[in-house]
Design a protein around this nucleic acid. Structure first.
Lengths: 215, 215
DNA sequence: CGCATAATTGCGTGGCGCGAAGTTTCGGGT
DNA sequence: ACCCGAAACTTCGCGCCACGCAATTATGCG
């Protein structure tokens, strides 16, 4: 890394970084498109690399597994957008409502096509990778929650625990939506699931007073 | 499968089924032991198979990846035990408290050795598999929640969503415990995180009344 | 323009997942 | 007690993938 390098958004950041992001994006989008066309089983890394115009070896310099490229195309910036959406919520809105609205808004823009999400659950390897990316959303979300509650995402447990719970509920909501009737909207299912989990800001005294005989 | 075959607990169920479970258990325990001794990088499938006394090809008939065998040894029956522990809770205890007590009790018996959990977070592939097994705990937990609330785990969203949120919070608690000081007990961290997520039984009218301008 | 750095690429290696065919072991029916 | 069908295990082998290494090329910067 030289003096100045890739900006987090990739805008106006030197030719090298832009090309790097371009190839990365070309690879992930090609992987997703091929997986949707042929099915994830019939996609070789050589195909993805050829589609993106790079060598197969270069592919491994960007993604360490075939599934990673597919999932990244779906959930890469969504993670950051969820955090940003939560920060953009009005400050006087209660924490739970702000979280629910932010996540629902970001989960439903883009194309939550049933085909696409169904693809993620078709193969065990893809499911695993999808779970991993789900947890990737937790960190930006935890930071946004921390900013809103005046806590520290690095040291306090509450923001991260809540983010983990929300991501778990969101994943279950997606699964449920897949098995539901066609008329059901993902936004409704997601809002319902998140509303149960999104809890009040942390109690000033986080110590629990319950008994703990075991362990 | 003939007339009578493997009982779910593996007791008194024909020699074939017992041998099957025995080899499966031998494989997973051997995988865990070798991973702890040499580190997960220096464990080949052939080693695990040789340690269990079976062929390498047979290994793939039981586990489709090397990491799966290691994680199964850690979280296989814990999933069922969590559900059983929740059902064993007194019926008059509130749902949230029952869930927290049940999960904390089952997470802390056995040997939540820091070494073992640290092993799961050492390698990305193992982390992924650990996340997957975390979700495996959701289904028994959701069934137990459904039984307690009078809902149906197969069709109602609440039990599964709550189980997903709980597993996410539990995973974050484990991560937090790894980075915490030595004096901190996993049970305390886990209880704190779960107490935030464990919510009241589902509202009789699950419909949300919030606005939903997007999508 | 020239050097340092980073990225890409070809090649080779080790390993994995799995399909097919053959062999051993178990279950149960007569 | 014996035998036959089925299930599990084994051996062989193929295709694919992740990665280290070294050479080549593109880029940043003075």
């Amino acid at each position: 890394m030289t003096v100045v390098d890739n900006e987090p958004d990739g805008r106006a950041a030197g030719l090298r970084a832009r090309k790097k992001l371009a190839t990365r994006d070309a690879l992930s989008s090609a992987a997703l498109r091929l997986a949707l066309e042929r099915g994830p089983e019939n996609v070789r890394v050589d195909d993805i690399a050829a589609e993106a115009g790079v060598s197969a070896r270069t592919y491994n310099n960007y993604f360490s597994s075939r599934e990673e490229a597919i999932c990244v195309a779906l959930t890469a910036d969504r993670a950051l957008r969820v955090g940003a959406a939560l920060r953009a919520q009005p400050a006087d809105k209660p924490l739970a409502a702000a979280i629910v609205d932010a996540m629902v808004s970001q989960y439903c823009l883009g194309e939550p096509d049933q085909k696409t999400i169904c693809l993620l659950f078709s193969t065990p390897a893809l499911r695993n990778e999808f779970f991993r990316t789900t947890t990737a959303m937790e960190w930006p979300l935890a930071q946004a929650i921390a900013a809103r509650t005046g806590l520290d995402a690095a040291h306090d447990l509450f923001p991260r625990a809540l983010a983990g719970a929300l991501s778990g509920a969101a994943r279950v909501a997606a699964e449920h939506w897949l098995g539901a009737a066609d008329g059901v909207r993902l936004a409704d299912v997601l809002r319902e699931a998140l509303s149960w989990v999104a809890t009040a800001p942390p109690a000033p005294s986080p110590l629990s007073t319950m008994g703990d005989p075991e362990c």
